[in-house]
Design a protein around this nucleic acid. Structure first.
Length: 475
RNA sequence: CGAGGUGUAGCGCAGUUUGGUAGCGCGCUUGGUUCGGGACCAAGAGGUCGUGGGUUCAAAUCCCGUCACCUCGACCA
Protein backbone atom coordinates (compact mmCIF):
# COMPACT_ATOMS: atom_id res chain seq x y z
CA UNK A 1 0.00 0.00 0.00
CA UNK A 2 1.25 3.44 -0.66
CA UNK A 3 2.54 4.86 2.37
CA UNK A 4 4.87 7.82 2.42
CA UNK A 5 5.03 8.09 -1.33
CA UNK A 6 6.85 10.87 -3.04
CA UNK A 7 3.55 12.34 -4.16
CA UNK A 8 2.36 12.54 -0.57
CA UNK A 9 5.64 14.02 0.58
CA UNK A 10 5.51 16.85 -1.89
CA UNK A 11 1.76 17.37 -1.93
CA UNK A 12 1.71 20.72 -0.21
CA UNK A 13 3.79 22.75 -2.60
CA UNK A 14 2.24 26.12 -1.90
CA UNK A 15 3.28 26.06 1.73
CA UNK A 16 6.60 24.30 1.43
CA UNK A 17 7.80 25.36 -1.96
CA UNK A 18 11.58 25.22 -1.52
CA UNK A 19 11.34 21.72 -0.09
CA UNK A 20 9.09 20.61 -2.94
CA UNK A 21 11.48 22.08 -5.44
CA UNK A 22 14.58 20.39 -4.08
CA UNK A 23 12.83 17.04 -3.76
CA UNK A 24 11.40 17.08 -7.24
CA UNK A 25 14.68 18.09 -8.85
CA UNK A 26 16.58 15.26 -7.19
CA UNK A 27 13.92 12.56 -7.30
CA UNK A 28 13.13 13.02 -10.96
CA UNK A 29 16.80 12.38 -11.67
CA UNK A 30 17.47 15.76 -13.21
CA UNK A 31 20.48 16.29 -10.99
CA UNK A 32 22.46 14.85 -8.15
CA UNK A 33 24.59 16.76 -5.70
CA UNK A 34 28.25 17.06 -6.51
CA UNK A 35 31.06 16.40 -4.03
CA UNK A 36 31.93 20.10 -3.96
CA UNK A 37 29.46 22.12 -1.96
CA UNK A 38 27.02 24.06 -4.06
CA UNK A 39 27.69 22.13 -7.24
CA UNK A 40 25.36 19.80 -9.04
CA UNK A 41 25.81 16.87 -11.36
CA UNK A 42 23.34 17.24 -14.19
CA UNK A 43 22.04 13.82 -15.09
CA UNK A 44 21.07 12.82 -18.64
CA UNK A 45 17.39 13.56 -18.14
CA UNK A 46 18.15 17.05 -16.91
CA UNK A 47 20.86 17.68 -19.47
CA UNK A 48 18.52 16.76 -22.31
CA UNK A 49 16.36 19.73 -21.36
CA UNK A 50 19.44 21.93 -21.60
CA UNK A 51 20.29 20.52 -25.02
CA UNK A 52 16.82 21.39 -26.27
CA UNK A 53 17.18 24.90 -24.89
CA UNK A 54 20.55 25.22 -26.64
CA UNK A 55 19.12 24.09 -29.93
CA UNK A 56 16.28 26.60 -29.83
CA UNK A 57 18.48 29.50 -28.75
CA UNK A 58 21.21 28.75 -31.27
CA UNK A 59 18.68 28.94 -34.10
CA UNK A 60 17.54 32.34 -32.86
CA UNK A 61 21.07 33.67 -32.41
CA UNK A 62 22.08 32.55 -35.89
CA UNK A 63 19.11 34.42 -37.29
CA UNK A 64 20.73 37.56 -35.84
CA UNK A 65 24.16 36.73 -37.27
CA UNK A 66 25.61 35.60 -33.94
CA UNK A 67 28.13 32.78 -34.13
CA UNK A 68 29.36 30.43 -31.45
CA UNK A 69 32.94 30.61 -30.17
CA UNK A 70 34.87 29.59 -27.09
CA UNK A 71 37.14 31.47 -24.70
CA UNK A 72 39.38 30.19 -21.87
CA UNK A 73 38.13 29.14 -18.46
CA UNK A 74 40.96 30.86 -16.60
CA UNK A 75 41.28 34.61 -16.55
CA UNK A 76 44.35 36.49 -15.29
CA UNK A 77 43.42 38.30 -12.12
CA UNK A 78 44.70 41.56 -13.58
CA UNK A 79 41.95 41.46 -16.23
CA UNK A 80 39.27 41.49 -13.59
CA UNK A 81 40.57 44.66 -12.01
CA UNK A 82 40.57 46.74 -15.20
CA UNK A 83 36.93 47.74 -14.99
CA UNK A 84 36.32 49.26 -11.57
CA UNK A 85 32.66 48.40 -11.01
CA UNK A 86 33.13 44.96 -12.51
CA UNK A 87 35.83 43.91 -10.07
CA UNK A 88 33.90 45.32 -7.16
CA UNK A 89 30.85 43.30 -8.12
CA UNK A 90 32.54 40.01 -8.84
CA UNK A 91 35.69 39.88 -6.70
CA UNK A 92 33.88 38.55 -3.60
CA UNK A 93 32.62 35.52 -5.45
CA UNK A 94 35.43 34.41 -7.74
CA UNK A 95 37.33 31.19 -7.18
CA UNK A 96 41.07 31.70 -7.68
CA UNK A 97 43.73 29.30 -8.90
CA UNK A 98 47.03 30.03 -7.19
CA UNK A 99 49.04 26.89 -7.96
CA UNK A 100 49.62 24.88 -11.09
CA UNK A 101 52.26 22.43 -12.25
CA UNK A 102 53.33 22.03 -8.65
CA UNK A 103 54.37 25.66 -8.35
CA UNK A 104 52.89 28.87 -7.13
CA UNK A 105 51.77 31.02 -10.05
CA UNK A 106 53.29 34.44 -10.58
CA UNK A 107 49.82 35.83 -11.18
CA UNK A 108 46.74 34.21 -9.73
CA UNK A 109 44.10 33.10 -12.24
CA UNK A 110 40.43 33.36 -11.56
CA UNK A 111 37.90 30.88 -12.79
CA UNK A 112 35.56 32.90 -14.99
CA UNK A 113 32.50 34.23 -13.22
CA UNK A 114 31.60 35.78 -16.61
CA UNK A 115 33.74 36.48 -19.65
CA UNK A 116 33.45 40.18 -20.47
CA UNK A 117 37.08 40.73 -19.52
CA UNK A 118 38.76 37.93 -21.41
CA UNK A 119 36.54 38.43 -24.44
CA UNK A 120 37.18 42.17 -24.28
CA UNK A 121 40.91 41.55 -24.34
CA UNK A 122 40.55 39.41 -27.46
CA UNK A 123 38.21 41.86 -29.16
CA UNK A 124 40.81 44.58 -28.73
CA UNK A 125 43.17 42.52 -30.90
CA UNK A 126 40.60 41.60 -33.47
CA UNK A 127 38.99 44.96 -33.98
CA UNK A 128 41.00 47.55 -35.91
CA UNK A 129 38.60 49.10 -38.39
CA UNK A 130 34.90 49.96 -38.67
CA UNK A 131 34.96 47.23 -41.31
CA UNK A 132 35.58 44.67 -38.51
CA UNK A 133 32.33 45.67 -36.79
CA UNK A 134 29.99 44.50 -35.59
CA UNK A 135 31.49 41.47 -33.88
CA UNK A 136 28.74 39.11 -32.85
CA UNK A 137 29.68 36.05 -30.80
CA UNK A 138 28.21 33.72 -28.29
CA UNK A 139 29.75 31.04 -26.13
CA UNK A 140 28.25 28.09 -24.34
CA UNK A 141 30.28 27.59 -21.20
CA UNK A 142 30.41 26.93 -17.53
CA UNK A 143 31.09 29.70 -15.04
CA UNK A 144 31.76 29.72 -11.35
CA UNK A 145 30.51 32.08 -8.67
CA UNK A 146 31.13 31.16 -5.08
CA UNK A 147 27.71 31.81 -3.59
CA UNK A 148 26.95 31.50 0.09
CA UNK A 149 23.69 29.64 -0.29
CA UNK A 150 22.84 27.44 -3.22
CA UNK A 151 19.91 25.53 -4.68
CA UNK A 152 20.01 23.18 -7.68
CA UNK A 153 19.66 25.08 -10.98
CA UNK A 154 18.56 28.33 -9.30
CA UNK A 155 21.86 29.17 -7.72
CA UNK A 156 24.82 26.82 -7.90
CA UNK A 157 28.51 27.52 -7.51
CA UNK A 158 29.12 26.32 -11.02
CA UNK A 159 26.53 26.65 -13.74
CA UNK A 160 26.18 26.30 -17.48
CA UNK A 161 25.10 29.22 -19.54
CA UNK A 162 25.23 31.00 -22.81
CA UNK A 163 26.92 34.39 -22.88
CA UNK A 164 26.72 36.51 -25.97
CA UNK A 165 29.17 39.36 -26.48
CA UNK A 166 28.94 41.90 -29.25
CA UNK A 167 30.86 45.00 -30.23
CA UNK A 168 29.48 47.81 -32.38
CA UNK A 169 30.58 51.05 -33.99
CA UNK A 170 27.80 53.15 -32.54
CA UNK A 171 25.89 53.52 -29.33
CA UNK A 172 22.56 53.27 -31.16
CA UNK A 173 23.50 49.96 -32.71
CA UNK A 174 24.68 48.47 -29.41
CA UNK A 175 21.57 49.63 -27.57
CA UNK A 176 19.44 48.23 -30.34
CA UNK A 177 21.18 44.87 -30.05
CA UNK A 178 20.65 44.90 -26.29
CA UNK A 179 16.92 45.32 -26.73
CA UNK A 180 16.77 42.85 -29.62
CA UNK A 181 18.33 40.12 -27.51
CA UNK A 182 15.93 40.85 -24.69
CA UNK A 183 13.10 40.40 -27.19
CA UNK A 184 14.63 37.14 -28.40
CA UNK A 185 14.66 35.85 -24.84
CA UNK A 186 11.09 36.90 -24.25
CA UNK A 187 9.86 35.18 -27.39
CA UNK A 188 11.92 32.09 -26.56
CA UNK A 189 10.51 31.93 -23.04
CA UNK A 190 7.02 32.17 -24.39
CA UNK A 191 7.14 29.76 -27.29
CA UNK A 192 9.63 27.20 -25.99
CA UNK A 193 9.33 27.27 -22.22
CA UNK A 194 5.64 28.26 -22.12
CA UNK A 195 6.77 30.80 -19.59
CA UNK A 196 5.42 34.35 -19.50
CA UNK A 197 7.92 36.98 -18.39
CA UNK A 198 8.06 40.62 -17.51
CA UNK A 199 10.81 42.54 -19.21
CA UNK A 200 12.30 45.89 -18.48
CA UNK A 201 15.30 47.81 -17.25
CA UNK A 202 16.98 47.03 -13.94
CA UNK A 203 17.63 49.65 -11.30
CA UNK A 204 21.16 50.88 -10.62
CA UNK A 205 21.30 48.64 -7.58
CA UNK A 206 20.31 45.52 -9.51
CA UNK A 207 22.25 46.12 -12.69
CA UNK A 208 25.25 44.11 -13.87
CA UNK A 209 28.57 45.22 -12.44
CA UNK A 210 30.18 47.29 -15.18
CA UNK A 211 27.11 47.88 -17.32
CA UNK A 212 25.57 51.17 -18.34
CA UNK A 213 22.15 49.59 -18.31
CA UNK A 214 20.86 46.12 -17.60
CA UNK A 215 17.63 44.74 -18.98
CA UNK A 216 16.11 41.58 -17.63
CA UNK A 217 13.24 39.22 -17.87
CA UNK A 218 11.55 38.08 -14.71
CA UNK A 219 9.35 35.03 -14.37
CA UNK A 220 6.80 34.37 -11.65
CA UNK A 221 7.16 31.14 -9.74
CA UNK A 222 4.30 29.19 -8.16
CA UNK A 223 4.86 30.80 -4.79
CA UNK A 224 4.73 34.30 -6.24
CA UNK A 225 8.45 34.89 -6.03
CA UNK A 226 10.30 36.31 -8.98
CA UNK A 227 13.17 34.66 -10.78
CA UNK A 228 15.56 36.54 -13.02
CA UNK A 229 15.46 34.35 -16.10
CA UNK A 230 17.68 36.23 -18.50
CA UNK A 231 19.60 39.46 -18.87
CA UNK A 232 20.87 41.73 -21.60
CA UNK A 233 23.42 44.38 -20.71
CA UNK A 234 24.33 47.53 -22.56
CA UNK A 235 27.96 48.07 -21.58
CA UNK A 236 28.57 51.38 -23.34
CA UNK A 237 32.28 52.02 -23.73
CA UNK A 238 33.14 50.84 -20.21
CA UNK A 239 34.78 47.59 -21.27
CA UNK A 240 36.04 49.05 -24.53
CA UNK A 241 38.01 51.63 -22.57
CA UNK A 242 39.21 49.11 -19.98
CA UNK A 243 40.42 46.70 -22.68
CA UNK A 244 41.30 49.16 -25.37
CA UNK A 245 38.79 48.03 -27.98
CA UNK A 246 39.41 50.79 -30.56
CA UNK A 247 38.73 51.08 -34.25
CA UNK A 248 39.47 53.56 -37.00
CA UNK A 249 36.13 54.90 -38.18
CA UNK A 250 35.12 56.01 -41.68
CA UNK A 251 35.97 59.58 -40.76
CA UNK A 252 39.53 58.62 -39.93
CA UNK A 253 39.11 59.05 -36.19
CA UNK A 254 40.10 56.41 -33.60
CA UNK A 255 37.03 55.53 -31.55
CA UNK A 256 36.15 53.15 -28.75
CA UNK A 257 33.64 50.45 -29.64
CA UNK A 258 30.32 50.04 -27.88
CA UNK A 259 29.74 46.59 -26.41
CA UNK A 260 26.88 44.63 -24.96
CA UNK A 261 26.42 41.17 -23.50
CA UNK A 262 23.51 38.88 -22.79
CA UNK A 263 23.00 35.54 -21.08
CA UNK A 264 20.71 32.84 -19.86
CA UNK A 265 21.74 29.90 -17.72
CA UNK A 266 20.69 26.47 -16.52
CA UNK A 267 18.60 28.48 -14.10
CA UNK A 268 16.01 28.39 -16.89
CA UNK A 269 15.50 24.72 -16.07
CA UNK A 270 14.70 25.75 -12.51
CA UNK A 271 12.33 28.36 -13.88
CA UNK A 272 10.46 25.76 -15.93
CA UNK A 273 10.13 23.51 -12.91
CA UNK A 274 8.87 26.23 -10.62
CA UNK A 275 6.56 27.82 -13.17
CA UNK A 276 4.75 24.69 -14.27
CA UNK A 277 5.27 22.02 -11.61
CA UNK A 278 2.43 20.73 -9.49
CA UNK A 279 2.05 18.48 -6.47
CA UNK A 280 2.76 15.41 -8.55
CA UNK A 281 6.08 16.69 -9.81
CA UNK A 282 7.36 18.21 -13.03
CA UNK A 283 5.32 19.36 -15.97
CA UNK A 284 7.65 19.95 -18.91
CA UNK A 285 6.75 22.03 -21.96
CA UNK A 286 6.74 19.70 -24.99
CA UNK A 287 9.22 21.81 -26.98
CA UNK A 288 12.02 21.21 -24.46
CA UNK A 289 10.85 17.99 -22.79
CA UNK A 290 13.45 15.20 -23.18
CA UNK A 291 10.60 12.72 -23.49
CA UNK A 292 7.47 14.05 -25.13
CA UNK A 293 5.37 10.91 -24.90
CA UNK A 294 5.63 7.67 -22.95
CA UNK A 295 3.94 4.45 -23.87
CA UNK A 296 2.81 2.32 -20.94
CA UNK A 297 1.84 -1.22 -21.88
CA UNK A 298 -1.02 -2.74 -19.90
CA UNK A 299 -1.01 -6.47 -19.20
CA UNK A 300 2.15 -6.71 -21.23
CA UNK A 301 2.33 -10.49 -21.10
CA UNK A 302 -0.93 -10.84 -23.00
CA UNK A 303 -0.19 -11.72 -26.62
CA UNK A 304 0.33 -8.83 -28.99
CA UNK A 305 0.59 -6.04 -26.44
CA UNK A 306 4.36 -5.55 -26.40
CA UNK A 307 4.55 -5.93 -30.16
CA UNK A 308 1.86 -3.30 -30.69
CA UNK A 309 3.63 -0.94 -28.26
CA UNK A 310 6.93 -1.32 -30.09
CA UNK A 311 5.29 -0.71 -33.40
CA UNK A 312 3.61 2.42 -32.06
CA UNK A 313 6.94 3.60 -30.68
CA UNK A 314 8.59 3.19 -34.08
CA UNK A 315 5.79 4.99 -35.83
CA UNK A 316 5.97 7.97 -33.47
CA UNK A 317 9.78 8.07 -33.50
CA UNK A 318 9.81 8.16 -37.29
CA UNK A 319 7.34 11.04 -37.14
CA UNK A 320 9.80 13.01 -34.99
CA UNK A 321 8.19 12.54 -31.59
CA UNK A 322 10.57 11.95 -28.68
CA UNK A 323 8.91 8.83 -27.33
CA UNK A 324 9.83 6.20 -24.75
CA UNK A 325 8.30 2.77 -24.28
CA UNK A 326 8.40 1.69 -20.65
CA UNK A 327 8.94 -2.05 -20.77
CA UNK A 328 10.14 -2.30 -17.17
CA UNK A 329 8.69 -4.84 -14.76
CA UNK A 330 6.89 -2.22 -12.70
CA UNK A 331 3.14 -2.16 -12.48
CA UNK A 332 1.24 0.25 -14.74
CA UNK A 333 0.23 2.36 -11.75
CA UNK A 334 3.83 2.76 -10.75
CA UNK A 335 4.76 3.80 -14.26
CA UNK A 336 1.95 6.36 -14.42
CA UNK A 337 3.22 8.05 -11.29
CA UNK A 338 6.86 7.82 -12.27
CA UNK A 339 6.42 9.45 -15.67
CA UNK A 340 4.02 12.03 -14.31
CA UNK A 341 6.63 12.96 -11.74
CA UNK A 342 9.14 13.33 -14.55
CA UNK A 343 6.80 15.68 -16.34
CA UNK A 344 6.30 13.84 -19.63
CA UNK A 345 3.57 15.82 -21.45
CA UNK A 346 1.64 12.93 -22.96
CA UNK A 347 1.12 9.38 -21.77
CA UNK A 348 -0.19 6.63 -24.01
CA UNK A 349 -1.76 3.54 -22.46
CA UNK A 350 -2.00 0.48 -24.65
CA UNK A 351 -3.56 -2.77 -23.46
CA UNK A 352 -5.57 -5.75 -24.70
CA UNK A 353 -8.89 -3.87 -24.56
CA UNK A 354 -7.52 -1.06 -26.73
CA UNK A 355 -5.92 -3.38 -29.21
CA UNK A 356 -9.17 -5.21 -29.73
CA UNK A 357 -10.85 -1.92 -30.59
CA UNK A 358 -7.88 -0.58 -32.57
CA UNK A 359 -7.51 2.29 -30.13
CA UNK A 360 -5.15 3.80 -27.57
CA UNK A 361 -5.69 5.90 -24.47
CA UNK A 362 -3.92 9.23 -24.19
CA UNK A 363 -3.52 11.26 -21.02
CA UNK A 364 -2.25 14.84 -20.80
CA UNK A 365 0.16 15.58 -17.99
CA UNK A 366 -1.05 19.14 -17.50
CA UNK A 367 -4.80 18.51 -17.20
CA UNK A 368 -4.91 14.73 -16.57
CA UNK A 369 -7.50 14.66 -19.35
CA UNK A 370 -7.94 11.11 -20.62
CA UNK A 371 -9.18 10.35 -24.15
CA UNK A 372 -9.44 7.43 -26.51
CA UNK A 373 -8.06 7.75 -30.01
CA UNK A 374 -7.71 5.59 -33.08
CA UNK A 375 -4.39 3.78 -33.14
CA UNK A 376 -4.23 4.36 -36.87
CA UNK A 377 -4.05 8.13 -36.44
CA UNK A 378 -1.61 8.05 -33.52
CA UNK A 379 0.90 10.45 -35.08
CA UNK A 380 -1.65 13.21 -35.72
CA UNK A 381 -3.26 12.70 -32.32
CA UNK A 382 0.00 12.88 -30.37
CA UNK A 383 1.34 15.85 -32.33
CA UNK A 384 -1.89 17.75 -31.84
CA UNK A 385 -1.82 16.97 -28.14
CA UNK A 386 1.76 18.20 -27.79
CA UNK A 387 0.88 21.41 -29.55
CA UNK A 388 -2.10 22.10 -27.36
CA UNK A 389 -0.30 21.16 -24.14
CA UNK A 390 2.41 23.64 -25.04
CA UNK A 391 -0.10 26.39 -25.81
CA UNK A 392 -2.31 25.73 -22.81
CA UNK A 393 0.64 25.67 -20.43
CA UNK A 394 1.57 29.15 -21.56
CA UNK A 395 -1.97 30.44 -21.32
CA UNK A 396 -2.41 29.12 -17.80
CA UNK A 397 0.90 30.52 -16.63
CA UNK A 398 0.14 33.85 -18.28
CA UNK A 399 -3.32 34.06 -16.73
CA UNK A 400 -1.89 33.27 -13.32
CA UNK A 401 0.84 35.87 -13.59
CA UNK A 402 -1.52 38.52 -14.92
CA UNK A 403 -3.97 37.89 -12.11
CA UNK A 404 -1.19 38.30 -9.59
CA UNK A 405 0.18 41.64 -10.68
CA UNK A 406 -1.32 44.24 -8.42
CA UNK A 407 -0.96 47.98 -7.91
CA UNK A 408 0.10 49.58 -4.67
CA UNK A 409 -0.15 53.17 -3.55
CA UNK A 410 1.42 52.74 -0.15
CA UNK A 411 4.11 50.65 1.48
CA UNK A 412 1.44 48.76 3.43
CA UNK A 413 -0.33 47.83 0.23
CA UNK A 414 2.98 46.78 -1.25
CA UNK A 415 3.73 44.56 1.73
CA UNK A 416 0.26 43.03 1.58
CA UNK A 417 0.77 42.42 -2.11
CA UNK A 418 4.03 40.52 -1.83
CA UNK A 419 2.76 38.69 1.27
CA UNK A 420 -0.01 37.34 -0.93
CA UNK A 421 2.42 36.10 -3.55
CA UNK A 422 1.94 38.97 -5.99
CA UNK A 423 4.12 41.15 -8.14
CA UNK A 424 3.45 44.73 -7.13
CA UNK A 425 3.60 47.71 -9.45
CA UNK A 426 4.31 51.05 -7.89
CA UNK A 427 5.85 54.40 -8.65
CA UNK A 428 9.45 55.05 -7.61
CA UNK A 429 11.41 58.28 -7.55
CA UNK A 430 14.66 56.61 -8.60
CA UNK A 431 16.72 57.09 -5.45
CA UNK A 432 18.60 54.35 -3.68
CA UNK A 433 17.26 55.25 -0.24
CA UNK A 434 13.67 54.62 -1.27
CA UNK A 435 14.62 51.33 -2.95
CA UNK A 436 16.38 50.17 0.20
CA UNK A 437 13.39 51.22 2.28
CA UNK A 438 11.14 48.92 0.25
CA UNK A 439 13.56 46.04 0.76
CA UNK A 440 13.66 46.64 4.48
CA UNK A 441 9.91 47.10 4.86
CA UNK A 442 8.61 44.36 2.57
CA UNK A 443 11.66 42.13 1.83
CA UNK A 444 10.90 42.90 -1.81
CA UNK A 445 13.27 44.15 -4.47
CA UNK A 446 12.81 46.11 -7.67
CA UNK A 447 12.64 43.51 -10.42
CA UNK A 448 12.13 45.62 -13.54
CA UNK A 449 11.13 49.14 -14.43
CA UNK A 450 8.41 48.66 -16.97
CA UNK A 451 7.33 52.24 -17.55
CA UNK A 452 9.90 54.98 -17.60
CA UNK A 453 7.56 57.85 -18.38
CA UNK A 454 5.11 57.54 -15.57
CA UNK A 455 3.25 60.39 -13.98
CA UNK A 456 2.95 58.61 -10.65
CA UNK A 457 4.47 59.50 -7.31
CA UNK A 458 7.07 57.51 -5.39
CA UNK A 459 5.55 54.92 -3.11
CA UNK A 460 8.09 55.71 -0.40
CA UNK A 461 8.80 59.42 -0.38
CA UNK A 462 5.81 60.76 -2.35
CA UNK A 463 7.95 62.79 -4.72
CA UNK A 464 7.40 62.66 -8.44
CA UNK A 465 8.19 59.20 -9.76
CA UNK A 466 10.60 58.51 -12.62
CA UNK A 467 9.50 54.98 -13.17
CA UNK A 468 6.84 52.42 -12.53
CA UNK A 469 8.62 49.51 -10.92
CA UNK A 470 7.59 45.92 -10.41
CA UNK A 471 8.52 44.91 -6.88
CA UNK A 472 8.60 41.29 -5.76
CA UNK A 473 10.31 38.88 -3.49
CA UNK A 474 12.94 37.13 -5.50
CA UNK A 475 14.98 33.96 -5.66
C1' C B 1 29.80 35.40 9.53
C1' G B 2 25.06 35.40 13.36
C1' A B 3 20.82 32.07 15.26
C1' G B 4 18.75 27.21 15.31
C1' G B 5 18.85 22.00 13.86
C1' U B 6 20.69 17.15 12.11
C1' G B 7 24.57 13.21 11.55
C1' U B 8 22.48 5.30 12.77
C1' A B 9 22.17 0.22 5.83
C1' G B 10 21.68 3.13 -0.96
C1' C B 11 17.31 6.68 0.70
C1' G B 12 13.94 8.22 4.80
C1' C B 13 13.94 7.46 9.90
C1' A B 14 13.24 5.05 15.21
C1' G B 15 16.37 3.90 19.24
C1' U B 16 19.74 8.45 23.09
C1' U B 17 15.72 11.01 28.44
C1' U B 18 16.82 5.94 32.16
C1' G B 19 24.20 2.72 29.15
C1' G B 20 23.26 -3.97 28.46
C1' U B 21 22.35 -8.83 21.41
C1' A B 22 21.82 -2.92 15.69
C1' G B 23 16.02 -1.88 14.49
C1' C B 24 11.77 -0.19 11.01
C1' G B 25 9.87 1.49 6.10
C1' C B 26 11.32 2.09 1.09
C1' G B 27 14.88 0.41 -2.28
C1' C B 28 18.15 -3.88 -3.76
C1' U B 29 18.91 -9.71 -4.91
C1' U B 30 16.47 -14.66 -6.06
C1' G B 31 12.00 -17.50 -7.21
C1' G B 32 6.76 -17.42 -8.10
C1' U B 33 1.91 -15.15 -8.84
C1' U B 34 0.40 -10.35 -10.94
C1' C B 35 -0.57 -5.89 -14.42
C1' G B 36 -6.47 -0.10 -16.89
C1' G B 37 -3.55 4.59 -10.81
C1' G B 38 2.58 3.54 -6.85
C1' A B 39 0.57 -5.27 -6.58
C1' C B 40 1.46 -9.67 -3.48
C1' C B 41 3.92 -14.11 -1.28
C1' A B 42 8.45 -16.45 0.20
C1' A B 43 13.62 -16.45 0.98
C1' G B 44 17.99 -13.27 1.21
C1' A B 45 22.14 -9.44 1.01
C1' G B 46 23.47 -4.96 3.21
C1' G B 47 25.71 -1.00 9.22
C1' U B 48 33.64 1.59 11.29
C1' C B 49 26.00 4.36 14.71
C1' G B 50 30.16 11.52 11.20
C1' U B 51 34.96 11.64 13.66
C1' G B 52 38.91 11.95 17.88
C1' G B 53 39.42 11.34 22.92
C1' G B 54 37.35 10.36 27.96
C1' U B 55 34.12 7.78 31.86
C1' U B 56 32.52 2.49 32.54
C1' C B 57 32.71 -4.52 33.45
C1' A B 58 29.86 -2.53 29.20
C1' A B 59 28.71 3.50 25.03
C1' A B 60 24.56 4.78 19.15
C1' U B 61 23.14 6.24 24.32
C1' C B 62 26.89 9.90 29.37
C1' C B 63 31.21 13.89 29.16
C1' C B 64 34.84 17.00 26.24
C1' G B 65 36.68 18.28 21.47
C1' U B 66 36.21 18.32 16.24
C1' C B 67 34.17 17.85 11.22
C1' A B 68 30.23 17.83 7.81
C1' C B 69 25.48 18.98 6.20
C1' C B 70 20.47 21.46 6.52
C1' U B 71 17.07 25.71 7.71
C1' C B 72 16.60 31.00 8.66
C1' G B 73 19.26 35.68 8.37
C1' A B 74 23.35 38.70 5.78
C1' C B 75 25.38 38.36 0.41
C1' C B 76 24.17 37.22 -4.75
C1' A B 77 22.25 35.39 -11.39
Amino acid sequence: MAKDTFVEQIADIETDFPRWYTDVVVKTKLVDYGPVKGTMVIRPYGYAIWENIQKELDARFKAHGIENAYFPLLIPMSFMTKEAEHVEGFAPEVAVVTHAGGEKLAEPLCIRPTSETIIGSMYSKWIQSYRDLPVLMNQWANVMRWEKTTRPFLRTSEFLWQEGHTAHASEAEAVDMTLKMLAVYEEFAKSCLAMPVLTGRKTEKEKFAGAVATYGMEAMMHDGKSLQAGTSHYLGQNFAKAFDIKFLDKDGVQKYAYTMSFGVSTRLIGAIIMTHGDARGLILPPVVAPVQAVIVPIASKKPGVVEACRELKNTLTKAGVRVVLDESENSPGWKFNEWEMKGVPVRIELGPRDLEAGKMVTVRRDTHEKTEAELSSAVETVKALLTSVQADMYERAKARMDSRIVRANSLDELLAGVDNANFVRAGWCGCRECEDKVKEFAQATARVMDDENTSETCIVCGKKADHTVVFARAY
